[in-house]
Each structure stands twice: as C-alpha cells, then as structure tokens.
Design a protein around this nucleic acid. Structure first.
Lengths: 245, 245
DNA sequence: GTCTATACAGGGATAGAC
DNA sequence: GTCTATCCCTGTATAGAC
C-alpha cells in the first residue's frame, strides 16, 4: 500500500491527512513543509513519518482522497438539482453555481491570500474538528495537483484523473442522458453535451479565478452560470412550443 | 525598472531571459535553480545576478515578456486566419487549432514528460540556438505563472493579466466585432461571443492536457476545434439562407 | 509501546565575497 | 568565474512521557 503500515491511532491519521490537505492546498507541494503539516495536525513529525513513508506518498495519498471526495460532493449536487428537476433552466443554473462554489472555494470559505497567520498559537486538540467531515479545501488541493502534474508518476496521475475529472464528466453525462430521455434536452451525444455545459458554465470563472487561487465574487459566479446556461440551452435545449413572452 | 541596471552586453541579457524562460517553464518557479539558468544561458551565475536583482525579479520579468509575446503570436494568428476570411467555419477552425498549438506547445515541440533526460552530456555551445527567435516555451511559462499565482504580487499579476489573457480576450473580441459588422456572425456582445469561442474550442484541450503539461495529440486538437466551432456557430453563426445539402 | 519534543546529518538553495 | 556563508528542508536519531 501507499502507507507505511497500520501503526498508530486512526484519529491521528485523520488529523494528518486533514492537515496535509490544508497545507498542501495553501502552499503547494514544493513549498509545503513536513514540519508545518505536523504542526497543523497537532502531532509530532515522527508520527507523520510513522503513517506515511515520505512527503510524496503523503501528497499523493491526500490528492487521491480529496479528488474522490470532490467527485462525491459534485455527485450530490447533481442529484439535488437535476435528478427531479422541473424548471430545467433554474436547475442547471443552480447546479452550475453550486459546483463552481464547491471547486473554487477561495471566495467565501478559506481566507487565502492573507499570508500572515501570525503565530497560530494554542489550539491544541485539533482532532475533534473531524465532525464537519468536509474540509472545504478540495479545490485548493486540486490546484496543487494541477501545478505538479509534470512531476506525478503516470499511474498515480491516471488514478487521480479517474477518481476526479473523468468520473465527474462521466457522471454528468449520465445525468444529461437521463434528461435527454425525459425529453428535456436535445443531445445525441450526452457526453458532449455535458462537456459543453461544463465549459460554458464553469471554465470561464475557473480561468478568471485561476482555479480558485484568487477569490471570485459570488455575483460573478451567478452571472457566468446564467449566461452559460443560456448558451447551453440554445444548443441543447428543446425548442419551446411557444415562448410565453 | 524591475532589472538591476543596464549593465552588461544585451546579448548576454537575452541569453539569460531565454534560459530563464526555458528552465522556469520546465521546472516551475520553486524547483528551478539559478545555477541551472546560468548554465542554460552559458553565462556565469554572477552575470545573472548582474542583470536581475534576484530569482523572483527574473521570473516576473520573463513572465511579463513571455505573456506579451504569446499575445503577439495569437494576434498574428487572428490576422492570418480571420481578418480576410471567406470560409468562416474553416477560418475559425484553423485559428482554433493554431492557437491551441501555440499555447499548449508540449505536443510536438518539447519532449516534456520523459523525465529522464539521462546525462544531458556534451552539447556545450547552446547559445547559437537563438536564431529561431521564438522560444516555443510560452505555454510552459504560462503554466508556471498559473501555478504560482498565489505568490505573485498583486500589481505584477495585474500587469501580467493585462498583457496576456485580458489583452487576448479584448483583441479577439475586436476581431469578432469586425466579423459581426461584416454580417458573418450574429453577436450583440462581441466580447461574450469571443469568450464562448475560446471556451468551446480551447479550454477543453487545455483542461485535458493540463495547459500543455501533458502532450496532446494533434488529431485531438483538430477534433475538439471542429466540434467547438460547430457549437459556436450554432449560437453565433448567421442562419444559412439555404443549406445546400 | 506509541507519541512528543528536539536535535542532527545531508543535501541544495540563494545570494554575495573574492 | 569560483568559492563560500547562511539558511531551509527532508528524513532520522535520541531523548523522555503516558
């Protein structure tokens, strides 16, 4: 396996992966230090090396995990907004907005950009944070992986893609196929339609915010989502029987 | 200015910027070493520090320069393929293909991805490479900047965006405005049309190749360009008077 | 017996001295 | 153009604490 062994308390392990997600996401792979990760996790550096063989193993491990979690999060969003949709335009727009928020988290949640945390002082027991379950840092870690793509072993990169972007494309395509079956979309090739939807509603803001590295105004997210859905429906929407006005 | 002063031969300076572009593009900002840049330039490290105050200054300097050059390159492509276009679909497709090639250079030109250069041995005199004029590394440096966005001073980042992505969007919008004036496109908002064109014909491959970090097959570039132009023209194309068959 | 804390070896980086 | 001072980082080793 990727990990060193089954040693130690699993709570420590979770604290380490959580801290690694945060620090790698904030600093990137090269700049991140194992000392900082250990400190953020509230454990000794030795404990980190007890669970993960080295820095690269730790990074790739959390990368894969985070990628899968983000995919799950987006899957939940499609289920929520599109599975039983009635107002298609509204459902698509809501989904686009929520997905952009999930991936480009920098806007509201994480206070990235303020480099100076100061002395992060004395919150000793971090591990009972684990309640919230989702770290809110998936987007940042995604960015770190993209920055390191050229230095990631081919097989691991493939696994990351399969658990992340590829799975998301496939699942959205399935969703759009269902919408087409219900007569709500016109799409011979559901995968192509899904790809176009993502391009038109997501990549514009992703590009402008550098995949979440810079904060993105919520109004801008909504604007781009609405305009993107508009373009999408002009290609793949069903011709309205009569436009009410 | 960003540079230390006007010291030294300008030829040396060009060799340094060229080497820095190559090395930063290949390794990224953090991993790249000043030793490697000096070696690649065929000058002493002292000479490098003679022209540029420090590593960051050098990086930001070549980043700005490369961004402007890439913008110029793309400007030339629009002039070549779109200014006097007759077959619009063909012109748009050719432009899309050429632009993708220019930005995502990894496909044919640079042999990135094969990590093991082995011992790069004994080609001593590198500098007479400089004949070709264009480095073919703009895309790689673009990627390095995107990876470091969070660590770039706000004003420099703004200048980089203005010389790069923003200028490119503006220029393509002007080009599309002219096409709309000629009656070849239907676009109230030329900027929006240009944005959509870029999304539909470029961002798909950019995403899949991680902005050129992984090689991209030429056939794939062409396929995505054609499909993207097709979608674009369904939104912004003029309704054909009669489709010939 | 696992975790903490600290200190240390080895390598490499920047930047400057000669 | 070489040589070196200084710092930082990874990964390990050496202590002691629960």
């Amino acid at each position: 396996m990727a990990t060193t062994g089954g040693a130690g308390r699993p709570e420590k392990r979770r604290a380490i992966t959580r801290a690694a997600t945060t620090v790698f996401g904030r600093e990137g792979y090269v700049r991140a230090g194992m000392d900082a990760i250990a400190a953020e996790a509230g454990v000794s550096k030795r404990t980190v090396y007890n669970h993960f063989a080295d820095k690269e193993t730790l990074f790739l491990s959390v990368a894969l995990q985070s990628s899968a979690e983000l995919t799950g999060r987006i899957r939940a969003l499609t289920a929520e907004h599109l599975d039983r949709v009635t107002d298609l335009r509204q459902g698509l727009t809501d989904f686009a907005v929520e997905r952009a928020r999930a991936v480009l988290s920098a806007g509201e949640t994480g206070e990235r950009g303020a480099k100076a945390h100061g002395d992060h002082g004395d919150h000793e027991d971090y591990e009972d944070h684990g309640d919230h379950e989702d770290y809110e840092d998936h987007g940042a870690l995604d960015r770190a992986i993209r920055a390191e793509v050229a230095n990631i072993p081919a097989d691991v990169l493939e696994a990351w893609q399969e658990a992340g972007p590829i799975a998301r494309r496939r699942e959205l395509a399935r969703c759009f196929e269902a919408l087409a079956d219900r007569g709500l979309l016109v799409a011979e090739d559901a995968a192509l339609a899904a790809e176009r939807f993502t391009l038109l509603t997501f990549h514009g803001i992703a590009e402008r915010s550098f995949w979440g590295a810079l904060p993105v105004a919520d109004a801008e997210v909504r604007r781009i989502a609405a305009v993107g859905v508009d373009a999408f429906l002009r290609i793949h929407g069903t011709p309205r029987p009569a436009s009410g006005g």
